[in-house]
């Protein structure tokens, strides 16, 4: 079993090195002539105004937060799904209860208006 993960570890190294090599090769064959205008950041063709920061929009954070809660929920449910064969019917109902509680949470968020973008 651990040889499988050894393969994964080696593949991570390969997957990082191979594209890195592919990006480094153009350094030898592509031109490299930076001038002040070319390296300026793009802002619809005009000079940049102010630093690169974004107005705080809480909606981004809210979506990441809701994603986190549902992610943890699915992580709890995966062992339950894998052990399905060995579970009696009431154990299945316990899992269903788990899902139903989180469905209720989603409905709460929906009614509270948290899931709107604007």
């Amino acid at each position: 079993m651990l040889t499988n993960w050894l393969y994964v570890g080696l593949f991570i190294i390969v997957a990082l090195v191979l594209p890195a090599v592919t990006i480094i090769v153009p350094r030898f064959i592509a031109p490299k002539k930076p001038n002040r205008i070319k390296v300026d950041v793009y802002e619809c063709g005009i000079e940049t105004v102010g630093e690169a920061w974004v107005q705080f929009k809480v909606q981004y954070y809210i979506f990441a937060l809701v994603f986190l809660v549902f992610d943890i929920e699915t992580v709890f449910l995966y062992p339950w799904a894998v052990a399905f064969d060995k579970l009696p019917l009431f154990a299945v109902m316990e899992g269903v209860l788990f899902i139903a509680l989180l469905l209720a949470g989603l409905v709460y968020l929906w009614r509270k208006g948290v899931l709107e973008w604007a």
Binding site: I62, L65, V66, V69, I72, E73, F76, E94, L97, F98, L101, L102, A104, G105, Y108, L109, K112, V114
Partner: peptide, 16 residues
Amino acid sequence: FEVASVLLLAAMIGAI
């Protein structure tokens, strides 16, 4: 396990 789901629900509501 079940308390964890209630805890997640509470965390969601609290964070909101």
